[in-house]
Every structure is written in structure tokens, then in C-alpha cells.
Amino acid sequence: MATGGRRGAAAAPLLVAVAALLLGAAGHLYPGEVCPGMDIRNNLTRLHELENCSVIEGHLQILLMFKTRPEDFRDLSFPKLIMITDYLLLFRVYGLESLKDLFPNLTVIRGSRLFFNYALVIFEMVHLKELGLYNLMNITRGSVRIEKNNELCYLATIDWSRILDSVEDNYIVLNKDDNEECGDICPGTAKGKTNCPATVINGQFVERCWTHSHCQKVCPTICKSHGCTAEGLCCHSECLGNCSQPDDPTKCVACRNFYLDGRCVETCPPPYYHFQDWRCVNFSFCQDLHHKCKNSRRQGCHQYVIHNNKCIPECPSGYTMNSSNLLCTPCLGPCPKVCHLLEGEKTIDSVTSAQELRGCTVINGSLIINIRGGNNLAAELEANLGLIEEISGYLKIRRSYALVSLSFFRKLRLIRGETLEIGNYSFYALDNQNLRQLWDWSKHNLTITQGKLFFHYNPKLCLSEIHKMEEVSGTKGRQERNDIALKTNGDQASCENELLKFSYIRTSFDKI
């Protein structure tokens, strides 16, 4: 039985969820670079991206490699990797027998973001014989899940209580170790020597080791999670996991709180800001991140802002960003909400898709409305799209047979046209069989910064309504002859009103 693990408890099935942008060198404390989270699957090609990484700022997932063999891993080693800020997950990587050479110096898994409450997941690794993470000293947050690894031993010899604050939620089941077939031998045991430290858990006094050649490092209890030197002297209180010299914040392997210019500090002093819960960055760093993602459509890219001495992905609820200094300031009234469309555009074809934009005031991208039916549609669209004030790209209304009016965009005031449909149009209306009105132009103002209007096959939309939009939106004169079809717009509506004058002759039985 794995020490510190839980057996036999019912657990939810383990679901495996399925960018080499360097964020800056980590400095003297770390020998390499800070790398983003990685999802490495199918083959070993991307694994080489770990070569210079000291910190993975995010998670590391290595999974679904069915053609790899043990010899493929023999020359692979990433000794610079010290810390993973989120979680480490391995799933069905064939041929991998140990992690001792792959990650010989991995010391800390912070667990800032977890995989279903777990910071370390080893699942269905069919050839893994031992973990071998002999320098792993601290899992700051989260638990361990090690399950269905039929060859995995050296679990009962690990004292997880020396690595985690609590072992109650560890789930370590259905491994070879369960069948008591392992016969784990710690260093020196074969020669009758006791080389590794022994600890007591559940009444068992057991030597602690990761492999037959690597003991588990056990520091004096007084050192807590700070770690200790090879001689057993406690590291500085700002260290986490390990250090090369005692009581020196510049000799830590990793930091308990924050890293700044080669030393570990309790908090980031001005003019620095907390970033990702582990390091200090200056304003320029946060500003660069903001600008890199301002026009990016890459998933996970955030326009970072500053709030409460932190550089964070977005302002919290009730705050909006001051564009001059990136500071989050309290909103006066309802907060603006910028919604970034991942692929640059979004099609609204149902109430469900409209709900995804609920509360958005600025759309960074283009909207395509293609709704053919739905219950209580006008009210639903207004509830979900009615706060949109600005669209950076274009607005396209296409084959939306259920629409009679666009009044559900009740606050839309600006279409920038930074991206144009077919390279020309910022407003595009095609084949809307029941569209009769755009907006009530006596109450609604709309500016279209650039781009043209396109109207074709809107049989109940009168040309007068379209011409009014040209005047109000500032697009009059931009359109070419064929942009607004004269014969297919309003051709099934009563669009022309003329005053009919009647004269009559009164007659009676005795007068003409």
C-alpha cells in the first residue's frame, strides 16, 4: 500500500482533458527560462521544448504516446526543470519506465491550478516501474492521483506527508504495488545497510526511497516546507523545498512566496507586481503582455491589467481597466465587458449561442446573426445582446428569417469595421425574408467608422429604411451602385405612401 494514499474509496472516473512563447529569463536562482504550460502528445517531438525550461508557468501534460519505446527515452533528460506552477499529468506514455532521468531536479509542483483537485496525476502508464522524482520536495496545493499503472512499484516507500501538507485526498490505487509483488529495495538494503531515512506512518517504520538508488530526502521537522541542505541544516524561511546553503534567500532552489532578481522575498516591493503567484514583474512586463494579447485571437491570451499590486489576466467583477495605466478602477454604474472572439468572429444561430455573449459591452471581433427560429426570440436576444455598444469588426445579418427588427441591439452605437466582410463591408444584410426595420432612427444613433453597407434580398425592408441608415451611420456616399439592390429590397412591402385627393359631386333626387 502506498504510504499516505487512500484505498478502496469510491472515486469519480478520471477524465483526461485534452506555445513556446518565453516569458522571460528567471535569473540567477533558476538555471534556465520560464516556459508556458505545455500539452505534449502523440510523439516526442515537442518534448524537446523543455530543454531550457527551469519553470513551467502553467501545467505540463505528457500523454497518448503509443509508439514510443524505452530506448526512445534513454537520452532524454531535462535537468534544468525545477518547478511547475500548476500540475504534472502523465497518461498512456508507452515505453517510459521512470522519471528519474527525465526530470531529475523537479523540486516543486505548486498546484496553482489543479487537474480535478490533483497536482500530480500518473494514470495508465503501462510501462512505468517507478516514479523516480527523487528531488520532489513540495506539492504546495492539491493532491496526488496514481492509478492503474500495472508495473509501478516504489510507492509504499514514499512518505507523501513530507511532500504535501495533507495526504487525506491522495488516491493511489490499482498499481502493481497493490499486489505486494514489488519487493522494493532501498539503497544499501541488499548489503544489509540502512542508507535512507525511515519514518513512521500508520504504525509502520519504513525506509523512504524513490528507487533502488535514490533515497527520499527527509528534512528535520523544524525546517517545515522550506527544505534543508545535504547536511540537514534548514533553508531560509522564504525558500521552498530545498537550498544549497542554509538561511540564505539567494540560495533557495525555489521560493515559498515570490522570486525577485535572484532572491526569494515575502512580497513584491514597489515598483514590482505579483505575477502568477510566484514571481515579481515590473510595469513594462505587464504592459507588454497586455499589448501582445490586445489584437491576438490565441486562446488563453489575456490583456493583463494591474489590481491590488498584482498583474492579473482581467479586472475583477465591479472594476474596469483604465487604459492609460492598466489599473483596475471601480465602475460607475454597470461595468464594461470586452469579449474577445477566439477566431475573430462568432455566429449567433440560437439563443444558446447568444447567451455566451451575455453582459458583453464591447465585441472584439465580428458578429454573424443567422437565426431561423426560436421561442420568445426578441426578448431572449435583447437579454443577451442588448448591452453590446461596440463591435470592432463587422455585423452580418444573414438568412435570419425569424427577425423582424434589429432593435434587440438596443445599445449598439459603434461598428468600427477594423475587419470587413469580403474585404469591403462593415454591415452586411443578406436574404432576411421578414426583416422590416433596422432601428427606430428617431431614437437610435449608430456610427460606422469604416467599410460599406450591403443589402440584398431583404424583400420587406424598404429602401427608405436603408437610406436612413446611410445618413445616420455616416456611410452615405461610400456605397457603390450594386451594394444596395434596388429590386430585391422592399419588393414585397408597401414602401411608397402617396396622399390621394378626392373630389365629389353631391346629387339628390331633384338636383344634379
Rank of each mutant, 00 (worst) to 15 (best):
L29P: 09
Y30V: 03
G32W: 06
G32M: 05
V34I: 02
V34Q: 03
M38G: 11
M38F: 03
M38K: 11
D39N: 09
I40Q: 01
I40G: 01
R41M: 10
N43V: 05
N43I: 03
L44C: 05
T45P: 14
T45H: 06
T45V: 05
R46M: 14
H48V: 10
H48Y: 05
H48I: 10
E49Y: 11
E49N: 05
N52S: 10
C53I: 01
S54V: 03
V55D: 00
I56Q: 00
E57F: 03
E57W: 03
G58N: 00
H59R: 11
H59N: 06
Q61S: 13
Q61R: 15
Q61E: 11
L63V: 13
L63C: 02
L63A: 04
L64K: 14
M65V: 05
F66P: 06
F66N: 01
F66T: 07
F66I: 14
K67S: 06
K67R: 09
K67E: 12
T68V: 06
R69D: 01
E71P: 09
E71L: 04
D72F: 04
D75K: 13
D75A: 04
S77Q: 14
F78P: 00
P79I: 04
K80P: 01
L81G: 00
L81K: 00
I82M: 09
I82D: 06
I82K: 03
T85W: 04
T85L: 11
T85P: 00
T85D: 01
D86F: 00
D86P: 00
Y87D: 00
L88A: 06
L88N: 01
L88Q: 01
L89H: 02
F91P: 00
G95R: 07
E97K: 13
E97Q: 14
E97M: 15
S98P: 01
S98D: 01
S98Y: 06
K100Y: 08
L102Y: 04
L102C: 03
L102V: 14
F103W: 03
F103A: 00
F103L: 04
P104D: 00
P104Q: 02
N105D: 03
L106Q: 00
T107G: 08
V108S: 06
I109L: 06
R110A: 08
G111H: 01
S112T: 05
S112I: 15
F115V: 13
N117L: 06
Y118W: 14
L120D: 00
F123N: 09
M125G: 09
V126Q: 02
L128T: 03
K129F: 13
E130M: 15
E130K: 04
E130N: 11
E130Q: 13
L131T: 11
L131F: 05
L131I: 12
L133S: 13
Y134S: 11
Y134W: 13
N135A: 10
N138R: 15
N138S: 12
I139T: 01
T140H: 06
R141K: 05
G142C: 15
S143P: 12
S143G: 09
S143T: 06
R145V: 05
I146R: 00
E147F: 05
K148M: 09
K148L: 06
N149Q: 03
N149Y: 00
N150D: 04
N150F: 05
N150W: 06
Y154N: 03
A156Y: 14
T157E: 09
I158C: 03
D159W: 02
D159E: 11
W160K: 02
R162L: 13
R162E: 11
R162G: 04
L164I: 09
L164G: 13
D165H: 08
V167R: 12
E168T: 09
D169R: 08
N170A: 07
N170R: 09
N175A: 13
N175G: 05
D177Y: 03
D177P: 14
D177G: 14
D178Y: 13
E180A: 06
E181R: 13
C182G: 02
C182Q: 04
C182E: 05
C182L: 04
G183A: 10
G183V: 10
C186I: 10
C186N: 02
C186W: 01
C186Y: 02
P187E: 04
P187A: 08
G188P: 08
T189D: 05
T189H: 10
T189A: 08
T189C: 11
A190C: 04
K191E: 02
K191I: 09
K191D: 03
T194D: 03
N195P: 08
C196V: 12
C196R: 11
P197V: 10
A198G: 02
A198H: 03
A198D: 08
V200N: 14
V200C: 02
G203A: 15
G203I: 04
G203D: 08
Q204A: 06
F205P: 06
F205M: 06
E207T: 13
R208P: 06
C209D: 02
T211D: 06
T211H: 05
T211E: 15
H212V: 05
H212L: 12
H212N: 10
S213E: 06
S213V: 08
C215K: 08
C215L: 05
Q216I: 02
K217T: 07
V218Q: 12
V218I: 12
V218F: 09
C219H: 04
P220M: 06
P220C: 05
T221R: 10
C223P: 01
K224H: 06
K224S: 04
K224L: 14
K224E: 12
S225F: 11
S225C: 11
S225W: 14
H226Q: 03
C228F: 02
A230F: 15
L233Q: 11
C235F: 01
C235W: 00
C235Y: 01
H236N: 10
S237Y: 12
E238P: 01
L240K: 04
L240S: 12
G241R: 05
N242G: 12
C243N: 00
C243A: 00
C243E: 00
Q245E: 03
P246V: 08
D248Q: 08
D248P: 01
D248F: 02
D248W: 03
T250P: 01
K251M: 15
K251C: 05
C252Q: 00
C255W: 00
N257K: 12
F258L: 10
Y259M: 14
L260S: 12
D261I: 07
R263T: 10
R263G: 13
V265K: 04
V265A: 08
V265N: 02
E266W: 03
T267E: 03
P269A: 08
F275H: 12
Q276G: 15
Q276Y: 06
W278C: 02
R279S: 12
C280R: 00
N282S: 14
F283D: 10
S284C: 02
S284N: 13
F285Q: 13
F285H: 09
F285E: 02
F285M: 07
C286V: 06
C286I: 07
C286M: 02
Q287E: 06
D288A: 10
H290W: 15
K292W: 12
K292L: 14
R298Q: 02
Q299K: 00
G300I: 05
H302P: 10
Q303N: 08
Y304D: 03
I306N: 01
I306M: 03
H307M: 14
N309F: 06
K310F: 09
K310N: 05
C311K: 02
I312R: 05
C315A: 05
C315T: 03
P316W: 03
S317L: 07
G318P: 02
Y319S: 02
Y319P: 01
T320A: 11
T320S: 08
M321Q: 10
N322S: 14
N322R: 13
S323F: 10
L326C: 05
C328E: 02
C328W: 01
T329N: 12
G333D: 08
G333S: 13
P334F: 04
C335S: 05
P336V: 06
P336N: 13
P336M: 06
